[in-house]
């Protein structure tokens, strides 16, 4: 009695196996399982003509065949769908070697990047930052800094003169006098990053316009060894953990003892700036007792630093602002 069911099932499974695409499979689904004209559905109608004792077996056989065909369609369907997606995606292959597409991004100037790096290192070391004018008074550029009047040390700072009392500041060291003149009590720890000017001809390593950071601290028992420790922290923050700081004696009227700071980066010693213990004359001028407090101060150039870090061979490039140069940073 169930022979016709077995025949339909065998035929259906063969057709499903032979289906070549999902549309084909949809047709087979309709052909065998379709609710109106499906071949298996047609056999279902024979159920009513059977003797009652054969009905259950016939019904079970029908359901069995239906689920076998459905499962075969699902399995084959999944196979065909995967194959069809693969084929479609293959046709969608693109040339990944074509260039990328983006508007020109905004970039920070390499000097800005240097300033911000130095600033963040020094903020972390407790320095508070101030700002003051580029047009500076002789009072703060020299007098406050213990420059003896009419001393050859002034010759080292060839300055741009504005009038009898003003000049373009030759260093950021006026920060000291500017802060100390406010009469703040120690402990103090201040810094400034900014632009300076000297009457220096422009060549590959010099410009009349350059940038410095100056920092100073006043507290009880600050020492030259403390200064070296802080300088080492700052330089490692800029040049990386391998950087080594070296002091050698040097002369600046506003410090005693005074030192030149050099940093070993790679296998080179780079002279980066000057430092030392704040001269007691300056502390006294600020109303701070130099027997009770001591201080140190340092200043270093910020233009040579990106030159070294990026291998730039001409210092004037930074302020020339050639976009072909700036777009490399």
């Amino acid at each position: 009695m169930t022979q016709p069911i077995a025949d339909v099932q065998r035929e259906a499974l063969a057709a499903i196996a032979a289906a070549s695409n999902t549309a084909n499979l949809t047709e087979l689904d309709t052909l065998y399982l379709g609710r109106k004209a499906g071949r298996l559905t047609g056999l279902m109608r024979n159920l009513g003509t059977l003797p009652p004792d054969e009905k259950p077996a016939f019904g079970a056989a029908l359901n069995e065949a239906k689920s076998v065909i459905e499962a075969a369609i699902a399995t084959r369907g999944a196979e065909l769908a995967a194959a069809e997606r693969d084929a479609r995606e293959q046709r969608e292959r693109i040339d990944l070697t074509l260039p990328g597409r983006t508007p020109e991004p905004g970039r920070l100037h390499p000097l800005t990047q240097t300033f911000e790096q130095v600033r963040s290192v020094m903020l972390a070391l407790g320095f508070s930052f101030t700002e003051s004018n580029h047009c500076e008074e002789y009072l703060f550029n020299f007098d406050w800094l213990n420059y003896p009047p009419e001393h050859p040390a002034l010759d080292e700072q060839m300055s741009f003169v504005l009038d009898d009392d003003h000049l373009m500041r030759t260093h950021t060291t006026p920060t000291q006098g500017r802060v100390l003149a406010t009469g703040q009590n120690p402990p103090l720890r201040y810094a400034q990053i900014g632009r300076c000017f000297r009457r220096d001809a422009v060549d590959d390593t010099h410009s009349h316009t350059f940038h410095q950071v100056d920092g100073f601290a006043v507290d009880k028992d600050l020492s030259l060894a403390d200064l070296k420790g802080v300088m080492a922290e700052i330089m490692r923050g800029i040049f990386g953990p391998e950087a080594i700081v070296r002091f050698r004696p040097d002369y600046f009227p506003f410090v005693e003892p005074g030192v030149e700071i050099a940093v070993k980066w790679g296998d080179r010693w780079l002279e980066v700036g000057g430092a030392g213990m704040i001269h007691p004359n300056i502390l006294r001028r600020a109303g701070i007792d130099p027997t009770e407090y001591s201080g140190w101060a340092f200043g270093f150039g910020l233009d040579r630093m990106p030159m070294v870090l990026h291998g730039v061979d001409r210092l004037p490039l930074f302020l020339e602002n050639d976009l072909r140069f700036l777009r490399q940073f």
Binding site: L123, L125, G126, R189, Q192, A225, A232, R246, F247
Partner: peptide, 21 residues
């Protein structure tokens, strides 16, 4: 000065504050 040690003094001034500008 090559034998000068490196010591980092404690920060007695509180956190560093950036210039508003």
């Amino acid at each position: 000065y090559d034998k000068l040690p490196e010591t980092v003094p404690p920060v007695t001034t509180g956190r560093g504050i950036n210039a508003p500008g």
